[in-house]
Write a protein that binds this DNA or RNA. Structure first.
Lengths: 206, 206, 206, 206
DNA sequence: ACTTAACCGAGACGGTACGTCGTGTCTTGGT
DNA sequence: ACCAAGACACGACGTACCGTCTCGGTTAAGT
């Protein structure tokens, strides 16, 4: 971009971001069009192409600013309680219709490596890093097996959420997310349920 | 579709299916074009539109026939061994470049509820059913906690695979899938690793 | 046409002819379609293509049978009376909406020399020949200048009719045709009107 | 047409006009295609549809500019000389292959009343008006019967030309046009030829 | 205070692909 | 053999968006 950001019109900038997001919600990501964004935002097409390379980048920027709040991670001392809170939050957000464009972005990224890289970098990586750090702390505290790479924990935790998000066999629900979290800690092997459940009660009495 | 299937040309039918799949592999799902499929298959566009509503349906049909072989599920008596075998197979298939169009379909389905429904119905549901059945058997055999809904097990197993498939933070690898399977059975809580590992050794000495 | 006319279905034949003509009247020549003819006639497309090369040929055949009645030429002994009767008849027919497809044929013939040849041969030539013969007779009878080629008379007579038929600046009306006929005989030069009118009165007192 | 004419590209405009006319000459009006025009002109189809509703309008515009030169009418004082000159010119133009698309337009207008209206308005009417005026002048000068509506003269003059142009029974030739003109003035009645010829000699000794 | 250069809205431009319509040919099954 | 039905390869249709490219008009910075 050779454009000079100091002369950028904040009005148009904001109008484009929200026009893009709103349209994506209304007509669906696939039917989202640069021309429609320009019209809705009351903006020339050139103004869009001057600052963004694709419509994905617009949505990504808007997504970024909308989700920046969900970055911080609780450190209550109880790993399962902290994870429960975090995953609950994430589930609520991703399950809502206002975040439907996020699914569109993940989808588009399957055909656009550069977009995929940006999503990882700006949306996913920060959350994964925070999660990895919290998990490591839990391992040091003896609340989690220390023979596991934290990255694997991340995938076990987020996997089912994304699975439902994208495959939609069942709706994304907070209660299920919590249940999955318990199962993960307790394991699927028989004879561990009771012990595991007890441990959970101690950690999270509420 | 008012067309009469008995008059359908098998030559054109087959040519379209493989042209579509090959092109999707070559240029990527997003750049796949009905026009290009018609040209490659030596077929009129009308013939495509007569039998399929979208390019997605073509790919879905081809995907269906290509994966119909991976439907059966092993019943060795050892649930972890059977799951390992099955997930290994699935991981290999989904991770390969020849199945890249599948990712495109999942992506497109995010903007097309009807397509999503069809993918579930034709691709996902049969495998989930088989998996659910196998898990139920394992519960009756006492090889798996019987206080869990089999559907939840499915999501815990497939979740991480789809996560990597779509988010691509790390490549989809067979070894990781197996590792995740072990972690799932053993649980993440500390002090269960040794016991769980022992149980695994008994069940799967190889 | 390799088809064997003796096995031809008279029902389909007739249905096609009238379906074609009716459709041409309803939607206009340019929007006339072989497919629509087949549907309206309750006939397979092949049946049409087996017996006619183009839709023009269908219309031409129907035109031919509809106009075969206007072929005979009156021989009353008075050339101007005979011409008046004949041109009146032609004007009535060509000016009516039921013969609109004829204009379509003339139009199409501008881009299709073979069609033009057929129209001349089957529709125009017979009438021209009859007219030429009648004019020659009049010349022998001393009712018409004998230093003129009859073909030129034909063009002077039919010209204005076709002009209005195709250019449509003014509607094709019987009264105008008769007036033109008078002007033709009398000439445009000044000082001949009275004499000519007298001659006309003698020839056609009614 | 909501397009803004001040932003119109003169290059594309001109390229489209001549591409359309040239192609019409080369392949014939009926095989003329918007797609081919766009390709030949190096232009997007949309640019054509933005400024013209049909290919006819393109040809009409080009025809208009090509024939605008033949609008003026000679006033030598001798009506027959002036008509002879004018009809000669018209005959030459319409008979030439470079004006073949005009025939296509007349043809197409038979199925398109709006096009017919435009042809009359832009091509025919101006010439008819000029001719009517010249004829009226001649009537005032006593060179032509004054009991005739000039419009009728127009049709008697142009009729045979259009007849040959469209029906093509005989080629459109300058000599025939002149001959028809003489016959018109002299009339077809016997015994007038000599007198009429004399009058002509006086008026047009060349 | 006055250029002047970048921004802006608007939208025309050369393209690509869309999904539809009609062409003329071919095939199937019924009479 | 002819027929109704309609699938087929093909070509063109008119439309929707793409991303690039002028046009004036308006700001804001730098002289």
């Amino acid at each position: 971009m050779p454009a000079n950001p100091t002369r950028r019109s904040p009005t148009s900038h904001a109008a484009i971001l929200s026009a893009a997001w709103d349209l994506a919600c209304e007509v669906g990501y696939a039917r989202l069009t640069v021309e429609a964004i320009a019209k809705r935002a009351g903006v020339g097409k050139q103004t869009i192409y001057r600052w963004w390379r694709t419509k994905d980048e617009i949505l990504l920027e808007e997504l970024d600013s909308r989700t920046s709040a969900t970055l911080e991670f609780a450190h209550s001392g109880d790993i399962r309680a902290d994870l429960r809170r975090q995953l609950t939050e994430v589930t609520k957000v991703l399950g809502s219709d206002e975040y439907a464009p996020y699914r569109g972005l993940i989808a588009a990224a399957q055909s656009d490596p550069e977009l995929l890289r940006q999503i990882e970098q700006r949306i996913i990586e920060p959350r994964v890093d925070a999660l990895v750090e919290r998990v490591s702390q839990a391992q040091r505290d003896g609340q989690l097996r220390d023979d596991i790479a934290p990255r694997d924990v991340v995938e076990l935790l987020y996997g089912p959420i994304y699975y439902r998000l994208l495959v939609r066999t069942r709706p994304l629900r907070v209660a299920d997310t919590r249940h999955h979290l318990d199962l993960l800690f307790e394991g699927l092997s028989p004879g561990q349920a009771v012990k595991a459940a007890k441990a959970a009660d101690v950690a999270q009495p509420g």
